[in-house]
Design a protein around this nucleic acid. Sequence first.
DNA 1: GGCAAAATGTAGCACATGCTACATATTGTA
DNA 2: TACAATATGTAGCATGTGCTACATTTTGCC
Lengths: 151, 151
Amino acid sequence: MQPSPRHPKKPVRPSALQAESLQQTRREHASEIAEDYVEAIADLALAQGEARVVDLARRLGVTHVTVNRTLARLQRDGYVTARPYRAIFLTAQGHALADTCQRRHATVVSFLRSLGIAEKAAEIDAEGIEHHVSTETLAAFERHLRRATRR
Amino acid sequence: MQPSPRHPKKPVRPSALQAESLQQTRREHASEIAEDYVEAIADLALAQGEARVVDLARRLGVTHVTVNRTLARLQRDGYVTARPYRAIFLTAQGHALADTCQRRHATVVSFLRSLGIAEKAAEIDAEGIEHHVSTETLAAFERHLRRATRR
DNA sequence: GGCAAAATGTAGCACATGCTACATATTGTA
DNA sequence: TACAATATGTAGCATGTGCTACATTTTGCC
Ligand SMILES: [Mn+2]
Ligand SMILES: [Mn+2]
Ligand SMILES: [Mn+2]
Ligand SMILES: [Mn+2]
């Protein structure tokens, strides 16, 4: 122990709440890659009928090796089906997640745009922010958009 | 190659932009832990005069082992000074980062609160969102706050 | 001063997520 | 149909970030 704290123990933020917040953030990070992948797969399936490893690599900004290993995880976790040298398809679970994520992504981008943020910055920031937006916050974003639109 | 795409190649989002966004998000994740640590160290230094490993562990919701290894990285990267069995202190570089992060954290929380989000949810979401807020978006949040306050 | 409790340090494991280099399969086309 | 280009797969490396179990040091207190 150290001698004398200059101030009585009065943490600016309660440790318990910050610990809880950070743990939540870590959980969100763990599911984040799955979310971005299923979103990209759904996009590609819509745009060109199917998603190939090489498309995903280009889209996600990683090598095909990384895509491959991640797809194995997604398959293990029930989000996609994939056979060697074939296209990748979403399971029902994957589709459900993709829908949720696409909708949430669009909402976050629109919300940022409504604050006057430029298209490109809105896209870039949304890609990170989207994974940390709770149901309550998403609802607040939608509420704000409805208000901004009505005017 | 696969036979015939049902639609002409018209990706919903351009691959290049999404790749760039995701790469930016990954870069932000790489600096995120450093940001949360220096913020916590600054908080603790203010509240009780110094930051100890055990305080950080409680605060960050991880074991003291994780704190230890992370502190080695922060030391390597010039954010903190630490000697065995002693308290941890921020370098000038660490202080600068902590100030920026504390200010940004406070802005994000206030912004979410101004949208009607409850205290706890605002804290939790802000802990993740803060690391993905660009200068432009932070400015927009501040602008919005000034407007909301003035009324 | 000495001892028990607390704090700190370290060894070693697991998993995620990126990479390069190289091997194999598929496909478009000459 | 063969072959070159493209796509896909795999081995092996690095780093980050979490953990448990155990060793060592420091500290509060009798
Ligand atoms: Mn994203
Ligand atoms: Mn994040
Ligand atoms: Mn944070
Ligand atoms: Mn923070």
